Simulated assay, not measured.
Amino acid sequence: MRARFLGKDPESQEGNSPTLFATDRTDRKTYLAQGWKVVDPEALADVGEVPDHETLIEIPEEVLKMYALRYLEQEGEH
Rank of each mutant, 00 (worst) to 15 (best):
M1V: 15
M1S: 11
M1L: 12
R2H: 09
R2Y: 12
A3W: 11
L6S: 05
L6R: 08
G7D: 05
G7Y: 08
G7A: 06
K8G: 04
D9F: 05
P10A: 07
E11A: 13
E11N: 11
Q13H: 13
Q13T: 13
E14Y: 11
E14G: 06
G15R: 15
G15V: 08
N16Q: 11
P18I: 06
T19E: 05
T19Y: 05
T19P: 03
L20S: 01
A22R: 12
A22F: 07
A22S: 08
T23Q: 03
D24W: 07
D24Y: 09
R25P: 02
D27A: 05
K29F: 11
K29V: 14
Y31N: 09
L32N: 04
A33Q: 04
A33L: 12
Q34E: 12
G35F: 00
W36R: 15
W36P: 04
K37H: 11
K37A: 03
V38M: 00
V38N: 00
V38A: 02
V38P: 02
V39Q: 06
V39W: 01
V39G: 06
D40R: 04
D40G: 01
D40C: 00
P41T: 02
P41R: 03
P41A: 06
P41Y: 01
P41F: 00
E42H: 08
A43H: 01
D46H: 03
E49C: 07
E49G: 08
V50Y: 01
V50G: 00
P51Q: 05
D52P: 03
H53F: 08
H53N: 13
E54Q: 11
E54W: 04
E54V: 02
T55E: 09
T55I: 11
L56C: 07
L56S: 00
L56R: 04
L56H: 04
I57Q: 02
I57P: 04
E58M: 06
I59G: 02
I59C: 06
I59F: 05
I59Y: 01
I59M: 09
I59D: 03
E61K: 14
V63Y: 00
L64S: 13
K65I: 10
K65R: 06
K65Y: 06
K65A: 10
K65G: 07
M66D: 04
M66P: 05
Y67V: 10
Y67P: 00
A68S: 15
A68V: 15
A68F: 13
A68P: 02
L69V: 15
R70V: 04
Y71Q: 13
L72E: 14
E73V: 11
Q74L: 10
H78L: 12
